[in-house]
Design a protein around this nucleic acid. Structure first.
Length: 365
DNA sequence: GATACGTGGGA
DNA sequence: TTCCCAAGTAT
């Protein structure tokens, strides 16, 4: 055993802790749609959706996703654009691309059965240490740590661990710790109990220690240090990038949309034509029109401003100056001209959904 | 090890 | 308003 871990475990009653945690979980666990059965596929889908995403946000997406793709085969055969449309608004879109790639692998290499071995399952696309532990413990009752933000918060308080949980390395310490204290009889309830405790009781701010089933084991509670833990250094926030974008109508009144590259930010989603605004340059409208003439030989006329959309990503901010305009001429390959009613069939990132909504509002007047 | 990668909600 | 996220993974 890791020496640091063995020091932490001194005078810690593992059996009592497990018992209290698991009993509490059995009694208090929420009725969540992915807890209806133990289908490894559904549990896997839920865990991917829950990555960096709140439970309340995930629930409606989960229902829709499972209705549309009820099993491995359905997801393996799904059309990627339809899949992205189903994921639209959930964010971190590479999650669903990786999930489909992984499910295809399961279909072709493992006969459609989700592997129950750590070594095999963890090699699948989009499956990291957390998802490995979560799926294998919940679906197959394997005693594998599933350390997420909740677990790090809970355990940092129970053991008064002051390592910065923003650092990737810190997760390993918690995994080594869980390796020692995880229940071998019911690893599923143990892992879920730790997370559920973090969600319901041991919350980031104002934890409800008086309701906590394991407060007798909690060193932070004993010392009154719970609100100072976990230690988490600040994220630096990203830069702002400005764009000019346009709802462009062609001669037939159809709308120009454009597919984003298959990698990077918002990969494979669609957007309205836009160009980055280089700060300092003042006439973004003329610049946009000229750029289209030079780059594509298309004649663009931006008629009037629509709105300004500000969208904050985790690592950067977009400020989109949106216009309505007309276009004449040939269009590049990655662009498409679609009817007004067809626009909503394509997956758009939220900032462009906002822009489209403003346009619909405007023409309805 | 640091950074890219979304979004909507709560304090 | 502003900040901080929330059941992480890939590179």
């Amino acid at each position: 055993m890791n020496e640091r871990v063995s020091v932490l475990l001194k005078n810690f009653n593992i059996e009592e802790f497990q018992k209290s945690l698991i009993e509490w979980f059995q009694e208090e666990k929420r009725n969540l749609p992915w807890r209806a059965d133990k289908d490894p596929y559904k549990i896997w889908v839920s865990e991917v959706m829950l990555q960096q995403t709140r439970v309340d946000t995930v629930i409606p997406y989960f229902y829709r996703f499972i209705e549309k793709y009820p099993n491995i085969e359905a997801l393996a055969n799904a059309d990627e654009q339809e899949l992205l449309k189903t994921w639209e608004g959930l964010g971190y879109y590479s999650r669903v691309k990786n999930l489909q790639a992984a499910v295809k692998e399961v279909q072709t290499q493992y006969g459609g059965v989700v592997p129950d071995e750590k070594k095999t399952f963890s090699k699948l696309k989009g499956v990291g240490p957390y998802t490995t532990g979560a799926v294998l413990s919940i679906a197959y009752n394997k005693p594998i740590p599933a350390v997420d933000g909740n677990v790090m918060r809970v355990l940092s308080r129970i053991f008064e661990i002051e390592d910065d949980i923003i650092k990737v390395r810190t997760r390993k310490l918690f995994e080594e710790l869980v390796e020692e204290i995880i229940s071998r009889e019911d690893p599923s309830s143990f892992n879920q109990g730790l997370m559920e405790l973090g969600a319901l009781i041991c919350k980031p701010t104002s934890p409800d220690c008086l309701l906590c089933p394991v407060r007798d084991h909690c060193r932070a509670f004993q010392h009154g240090t719970e609100t100072r833990l976990p230690v988490k250094s600040k994220q630096k926030k990203g830069r702002t990038v400005q764009y000019i974008a346009a709802i462009l109508l062609d001669e037939r009144g159809k709308v120009v949309i454009r597919k984003r590259p298959d990698e990077g930010l918002l990969a494979s989603l669609w957007e309205f034509p836009n160009e980055e605004v280089i700060s300092g340059k003042k006439n973004m409208i003329i610049d946009f029109e000229n750029e289209w003439l030079d780059k594509y030989g298309a004649n663009v006329d931006l008629l009037e401003p629509l709105c300004v959309v500000e969208h904050v990503f985790s690592h950067l901010t977009w400020k989109i100056h949106a216009f309505v305009g007309l276009v004449k001429g040939e269009l590049p390959q990655n662009m498409k001209v679609v009817a007004f009613e067809e626009v909503d069939e394509y997956p758009f990132p939220v900032p462009y959904q906002k822009m489209w909504k403003e346009y619909k509002k405007k023409i309805a007047i």
